Computed example of a mutant assay.
Amino acid sequence: MNAEDARYDAGHIQVLEGWEAVRKRPGMYIGSTSERGLLHMVLEVTDRAVNEVLAGRAASVDVTLTSDGGVRVADDGPGIPIDEAGAAGGPGLEALLTRMQAGVVAEGRHDVTAGFCGVGPAVVNALSCRMTAEVRREGVRWAQEYARGVAATPLTRVGTATRSGTTLAFWPDADIFGAMEFSFDGLEERFRELAFLNHGLDISLTDLRHPGESRSVRLCFPGGARDFVDFLDDRSAASALVDTVAFEHEDPRMGGVMEVAFRWRNCPDERVESFANSRPTIGGTHAVGFRDGMAAAVTAYAREQGLLAATDPDFDAGRIGAGLTAVVSVKLDRPEFEGSTRGLLGNPEARDCVAQAVQDHLARWLKHHPEGAAAVIHQIVQGAGRD
């Protein structure tokens, strides 16, 4: 140990206060300071507006990439409460935008976290050189400006309002972000997922950054997971062997609801997308349960119809994927994710519940669609023969 090491004491410990910690280590809160981090910034601000729509308090969400490098998120809900405590005990406007985790929603089945960090709009404010808020509530229009996490102006009554709603806009701090280009395609992909997974969501995304080349998409899919499967297969050259099978089912044993849709195409490729509480997952108990249920239903039907010899082994979960496109979504009261990236669902009950529901629904479909069932099993058998 040298003399300098020996002199190490409390005076060498750096204490970061307020928003200094967020600005010093932004990657800990939004993942990165590159394009990925900017995408999370937009999603964290959009969270509240999306949940207003899903709760029935608003009809739509509008997200705009502005010509001056900012992002504007607007909804037509009742407007964020402007008082300190909030109308229902939640945070008021300034608390929501200046206090860490104020108003960040619980992650039960009825709440959607658009982003993957769940840190809330206050962190976005801290990482922005400027944020503006306009609240239209009870016939009054209020406005306030912020800079780097703190209020730059008092909350001010600026006029009357004929409609209600909230508009938040922010401009990322160039001192923090190396790249300042928001990905329209990345945002569109995530918003499309949310619209597929949440039937009542109507969200639009508009890009005004390039004069004369503006573009806009509106995302609303009443068909839910069924529409999602159609979208996933839309660019495929392979023809569908059967129509899409889709169902929703609530199971109190897992404390939640599932929505599943799938179909087979005339090709060997497999694509299964899984989600838990509207978060994309790389797998987990719900995805394993889906494969278990599929394999059990197909094996049982094939044996009943003599399409599988008595000496042939059961189709395992890996066999039924030839040509399969599927969306498996669960929404749980208490989701349990494994790992810091929260990409793997761990709720043990979800496996059995999803497996049983898939097996029951697929078994009924196979029974009532013998031609389609024969085509699917023939393709699976062919795929097994190639392995």
Results as ranks from 00 to 15, higher is better:
Gln144Phe: 04
Ser183His: 05
Glu193Ser: 10
Gly70Leu: 14
Pro78Met: 00
Phe184Gln: 14
Val53Asp: 09
Arg137Asp: 12
Pro172Trp: 09
Ala106Val: 03
Val150Met: 14
Leu155Ala: 05
Leu93Glu: 02
Ala74Met: 10
Ala152Phe: 05
Thr162Asp: 12
Ala147Met: 14
Ser67Met: 11
Arg141Phe: 02
Arg130Ser: 13
Thr113Gln: 15
Ala58Arg: 04
Val123Thr: 14
Phe196Trp: 06
Arg163Asn: 05
Val63Trp: 12
Leu168Ile: 14
Thr162Gln: 12
Thr160Ser: 13
Val105Met: 13
Leu54Tyr: 13
Asp185Val: 12
Asp111Gly: 08
Leu54Pro: 07
Thr132His: 14
Ala126Trp: 02
Leu168Trp: 07
Asp111Leu: 09
Leu168Gln: 08
Val119Arg: 12
Phe170Arg: 01
Ser183Asp: 08
Gly159Glu: 07
Ala74His: 14
Thr167Arg: 07
Arg141His: 07
Glu189His: 11
Ala85Val: 08
Pro78Ser: 01
Met100Phe: 15
Ala133Tyr: 06
Ala59Gly: 12
Glu134Gln: 12
Gly139Phe: 02
Ala174Lys: 05
Ala195Glu: 08
Ala114Cys: 04
Ala174Met: 08
Val105Thr: 13
Ala151Asn: 08
Gly89Asp: 02
Gly186Asp: 14
Val124Met: 03
Arg109Asp: 13
Leu194His: 02
Phe170Thr: 03
Cys129Ser: 12
Gly77His: 01
Thr156Asp: 04
Thr162Asn: 11
Cys129Met: 10
Thr160Trp: 06
Leu93Ser: 01
Thr166Val: 10
Thr160Asn: 13
Ala147His: 11
Thr64Tyr: 08
Gln144Glu: 13
Asn125Arg: 07
Ile82Phe: 08
Gly86Gln: 03
Val53Asn: 05
Leu97Arg: 03
Asn125Ser: 12
Asp83Val: 05
Gly89Gln: 06
Thr160Leu: 14
Glu107Trp: 10
Thr113Lys: 14
Ala95Phe: 07
Gly89Pro: 01
Arg137Lys: 13
Val123Leu: 13
Phe196Arg: 09
Val112Asp: 04
Thr64Val: 15
Cys129Gly: 10
Leu194Cys: 03
Gly120Val: 10
Thr160Ile: 09
Asp83Met: 02
Arg57Gly: 00
